[in-house]
């Protein structure tokens, strides 16, 4: 099934615009013009955008309007950017958040990268 809704009975046809390439955790994906990072990744079946910095539990888009910050990623080196509010641009480099070290916390750890 194509995840993109190109035809809609009320809203009509969607203009595909130009196709852009970007990477997420080093893998290449494509986006249609006007798609947010969250939308373009969802269209490619990617739901996990980061893991909880401490617990490592997977997280994805939740509110999709910029309120919850669950979809925050690093874009072109800038951290804490909301994937749901950011339109894909050509050659954008998107990286998921990973577990961060918590060496000072009781039972803390020094962090690891998600696969």
């Amino acid at each position: 099934m194509n995840a993109r809704i190109m035809k809609h009975p009320i809203l009509g046809e969607r203009d595909p615009g130009k196709t852009m390439q970007f990477t997420f955790n080093g893998c290449a994906y494509s986006a249609l013009e006007g798609e947010t990072v969250a939308a373009a990744l969802l269209a490619s079946g990617i739901r996990t955008l980061r893991v909880h910095e401490e617990k490592g539990t997977p997280r994805g888009m939740y509110c999709n309007i910029g309120h919850c910050y669950e979809c925050r990623v690093t874009i072109n080196g800038i951290p804490t950017v909301r994937a749901c509010m950011t339109l894909v641009e050509e050659s954008m480099i998107v990286e998921a958040g990973t577990v961060l070290p918590t060496p000072l916390q009781k039972g803390g750890h020094h962090g690891c990268l998600i696969p």
Binding site: A3, R4, T48, H52, P58, R59, M61, Y62
Partner: peptide
Amino acid sequence: TLPGVMSIGAAQVMTNVQRVR
């Protein structure tokens, strides 16, 4: 908190604005 769980408003915007299922 699992990816794939979203607020109802999120689904609305993704469907009608971003046009992704």
